[in-house]
Design a protein around this nucleic acid. Structure first.
Length: 330
DNA sequence: AAAAAGTCCAACCGCAGACAC
DNA sequence: AGTGTCTGCGGTTGGACTTTT
């Protein structure tokens, strides 16, 4: 109901950084009242502070509260913030309720100063969580070494995002959308993919997960690349459906030995080379195609999925990828 | 060593929902 | 139903600090 007159506009009310004495007065006042503030508007006078009630509330909730956790954000916290932001947008206070001891202000600052820039470096729009258009990031023209370097610079960012990025680039190349340049760019990601796969293997080794592993997703993509044309792939490139296929495969062959990191380089390079020189070689017998039916089910080709969109249940691949990495409930 | 540029984050601003009267 | 007050929220700012030139 409109804006209220605020004591902050009163002449003589102090603004700016808080002194130790002011902090002490505020904390002691709140402690004297058993941690209950009552009316923020009346608090400054009662506590002997020449501050506006609003300023006192902010100081308490963002800095002086005893349950506040200081220090750097962990990788898990960072991953959770990204996931929650994809789901909630700039609802910092809601996001803060999922992170013990972190304030909305702190999370907002961390997003704007760290995460946002990391996502942009990865070619991900921090607002929509979708990949930026190729014109914006010119990914196909970036040498493989530069992509690898960029991936390495991600530092603490959870490996799940590297995996997501790698898979998207790979699919783009395998689908033939980027031609030779895209294939070459994706090939440059092989070392990053291997590193991410190794990380993922470590993650999965510590728990029995029914979520498709990164290796399984890679194997599925490779299997597509080896027998299917780009046109065919464009029809079956729904991650939600790939997810179903992978789950089915896992159920059918749960004892299969996992593929470890370094094993990808050779078959992946071959697959990319094949995709880049479409039309491809001999197409395998249709009976061997696990996703043969999808092309018939879909009336129109499906484009690349939205990156990290957690609101869309059809994008179970992204959701599971991130859930797996954070192992935290929604 | 010093100036300029960039980064970080505590604190402020103003809007709007909830609630009391 | 209308109005005033309180509180919470998200966007923005400004100054301290760090890095680069």
């Amino acid at each position: 109901m409109g804006r209220s007159p605020c004591c902050c506009h009163d002449a003589g009310v102090k603004k700016g950084p808080w002194t130790e004495e002011e902090d002490r007065a505020l904390v002691e006042h709140i402690q004297r009242h058993g941690g209950h503030v009552g009316s923020w508007r009346n608090l400054p006078k009662a506590a002997g502070l020449n501050r506006c009630g609003k300023s006192c509330r902010l100081r308490w909730t963002n800095y002086l509260r005893p349950d506040i956790k200081r220090g750097n954000f962990t990788d898990d916290e960072e991953s959770l913030i990204i996931r929650l932001h994809a789901q909630l947008g700039n609802k910092w206070s809601t996001i803060a309720t999922h992170l013990d001891g972190r304030t909305d202000n702190e999370i907002k600052n961390y997003w704007n100063t760290h995460i946002r820039k990391k996502l942009l470096r990865m070619g991900v729009d921090p607002v929509t969580h979708q990949r930026l258009p190729p014109d914006d990031i010119a990914i196909a023209s970036v040498p493989g070494a530069a992509i690898l370097s960029a991936a390495a610079s991600l530092g603490g960012l959870n490996t799940a995002l590297i995996q997501v990025q790698a898979l998207q680039l790979l699919l783009q190349a395998v689908n033939g959308g980027g031609g030779n340049a895209a294939a070459a760019a994706a090939a440059g990601l092989i070392p990053s993919i291997n590193a991410a796969a190794a990380d993922n293997a470590i993650l999965n080794a510590n728990r029995r997960s029914i979520v498709p592993s990164f290796q399984d997703q890679m194997n599925l993509i490779l299997s597509h690349a080896n027998y299917a044309s780009p046109d065919h792939l464009s029809n079956i490139a729904s991650f939600a459906e790939q997810h179903d296929v992978v789950v089915q495969r896992l159920n059918n062959a749960s004892s299969a030995a996992p593929v470890v990191g370094g094993a990808y380089a050779e078959p992946l390079a071959a697959a990319l080379a094949s995709a880049a020189t479409y039309p491809p070689q001999e197409v395998a017998a249709s009976a061997d195609r696990p996703v043969q039916g999808f092309a018939e089910l879909l009336s129109e080709p499906i484009g690349m999925p939205s990156m990290c969109s957690l609101e869309d249940d059809e994008d179970a691949f992204w959701k599971n990828m991130l859930l797996e990495s954070s192992s935290l409930p929604l």
